[in-house]
């Protein structure tokens, strides 16, 4: 298995009104192609900061980040931007669809940005929206969509360039349980298609979807391992639910 993402001794120190705050203190992480990694931790444990650094949205204080075998932590802000176009897709808690653009335009934007022709972009968008059951909402403004639909559009947008890495920051944080289920099912499907995913969440149900869970505490990794699978998924409810 090839390593898609590697972080070596990654550190982030903020200065908050003169006082240095250690948000991430020396994180080492290796993520292989096709892995689905959940990053868990209490709020303030530095998980959002970590994923922002991994996607170049936030600059690291020290340490190394390697993406697809290339060292990227030394890149400038615009260098990161160029890299993100092709290699990194982002999904945020607040969906962050561009409010003035239609759903279709939102999904086509990254493809256009990465150099696709308008036709290619449109085809890719039609394909993605069809897969996410959003074809008929293509011309709607994002404001008219439900939260779950918006997050699905955001997912489509993040996947538009077939990125090496999909980073998701609390993707279900603003969704009710039904929409959460929809989005999780989609993430699972995308993962089965071979997409490498790193996801920050505090929701165990969401984290349980991953192959591997990284637990952060106070900016440090306290646990990193695969979620055990006791038996093939055939067990009946009786084995997991104990009705007294």
């Amino acid at each position: 298995m090839s390593v898609v993402l590697k972080a070596v001794n990654l550190v982030k120190v903020y200065t908050d009104s003169g006082v240095p705050v250690h948000a991430v203190r020396g994180v080492d992480l290796e993520i292989e192609a096709g892995e689905f990694v959940a990053i868990m931790g209490p709020s303030g444990s530095g998980k959002s900061t970590l994923i922002h650094m991994l996607g170049g949205l936030d600059a690291r204080t020290s340490g190394e980040i390697w993406l697809d075998g290339r060292r990227v932590d030394t890149l400038s802000e615009s260098g990161w931007a160029l890299l993100r176009r092709r290699k990194v897709g982002f999904v945020f808690q607040n969906f962050n669809l561009v409010a003035n653009m239609t759903v279709a335009d939102n999904v086509e934007l990254p493809a256009l940005l990465a150099g696709a022709s308008p036709r290619e972009a449109r085809e890719r968008r039609e394909d993605l929206l069809a897969r996410l059951n959003l074809t008929e909402r293509a011309d709607a403004p994002p404001g008219q969509l439900s939260g779950g639909e918006q997050q699905r559009v955001a997912l489509a947008r993040a996947l538009a360039n077939r990125p090496s890495l999909l980073l998701a920051d609390e993707p279900t944080g603003n969704l009710d349980s039904r929409n959460t289920r929809d989005v999780l099912r989609l993430l699972g499907e995308v993962h089965r298609d071979g997409q490498t995913i790193v996801m920050v969440t505090h929701d165990a149900r969401v984290a349980a979807l991953a192959d591997r869970v990284v637990s952060l505490l106070d900016g440090e990794i306290v646990d990193d391992g695969r979620i055990p699978r006791r038996r093939p998924a055939t067990g009946t409810a009786g084995e997991v639910i104990d009705l007294r």
């Binding site: 949205l57 615009s78 931007a81 890299l83 176009r85 945020f92 962050n96 561009v98 990254p110 990465a114």
Partner: peptide
């Protein structure tokens, strides 16, 4: 500001 941040997360550079 939020839309602009989104654009940057999609890969627009500061100058762009």
């Amino acid at each position: 500001l939020r839309d602009l941040a989104t654009l940057k997360s999609l890969g627009f550079t500061r100058r762009q």
